[in-house]
Design a protein around this nucleic acid. Structure first.
Lengths: 145, 145
DNA sequence: GCCGGTTAGTTACAAATGAAACCGATGTCA
DNA sequence: TGACATCGGTTTCATTTGTAACTAACCGGC
């Protein structure tokens, strides 16, 4: 007879559940404290760390498709956190950068994010951290076949 | 000066990316081979392993809210994979069970799912597996504060 | 038995998402 | 230069998802 199947032990399921739990936990705080969604937070985080860039690079660095990036940027721009200007070198591109207000928010939110991450890591056994790190790296590669 | 922030090293982000990559990989195959979405697959998996139950238990065992379960069940019922009947002991409840066709699908899909999982695990270093297991378990707990 | 509160599940409506169409700008190759 | 494929980014539309309202059934006290 075949091995019984247990969804609770199924890796894709477990990964999805863990990611969802962690995301929800963080999303709630970003939202409560700063009114940001996760896509917006990702864009802010990259722009804050990276400086001025165009949207295409954001799609690569946030692992979101260009539609999602476009929408997140539009929201941030509407909130006065991001400023757009045409790229003089390529008329198709739009250069994106944080406004002073956006930079301020970035400076406020990063320590919180780091604290949350510490809090999360503190719940894990030290030995598990590198393992998790490595596993996430391997699992994140795009489907091979 | 504060530690620079790098989204690519941020645990919630990495977890989301990994889960998304794995889910996409699996979802594509469920969908191609059997026409199932992930919620439907989850319901099928639980019903197949657990036997007859009511929807409420499915919400617990699939970590999906009752609306999502309800919709997945409706789809499966429409496809003739699940049969519903009123619970004689509680008129509010609906007892759910796989039809013979549903059981057949279950028998077909479980080996595939297990094979996919093996394939995935094979990409991970053996030492990391228990660590990953433990980490996912800890991270999946609902937000504490 | 009846009334208020709760539970199981579905439905309705709004927000988020993804795929594809679209538009202006660029590059290229004859 | 001019036709054509491609690229960056936005918009449109269909689907998915989440939240809240709703219906029917149960449960308790009275």
């Amino acid at each position: 007879m075949s091995t019984p199947f247990d969804l609770a032990k199924f890796l894709p399921y477990r990964l999805a559940v863990a990611a969802q739990a962690v995301s929800a936990r963080f999303a709630r705080r970003y939202s409560e404290a700063f009114g940001l969604t996760i896509p917006e937070w990702r864009v802010l985080a990259v722009l804050g760390g990276f400086g001025t860039t165009h949207a295409q690079r954001l799609t690569a660095l946030t692992t979101m498709d260009k539609v999602k990036v476009s929408r997140a940027v539009a929201k941030l721009a509407a909130a006065g956190l991001v400023q757009r200007q045409p790229d003089p070198e390529d008329g198709r591109r739009v250069l994106l950068a944080l406004t002073p207000k956006g930079e301020q928010l970035y400076r406020d939110i990063v320590p919180l994010a780091q604290a949350m991450q510490e809090e999360l890591l503190a719940e894990l056994p030290p030995a598990g951290r590198e393992a998790l790190d490595e596993a996430l790296r391997l699992l994140s590669r795009s489907p091979k076949s």
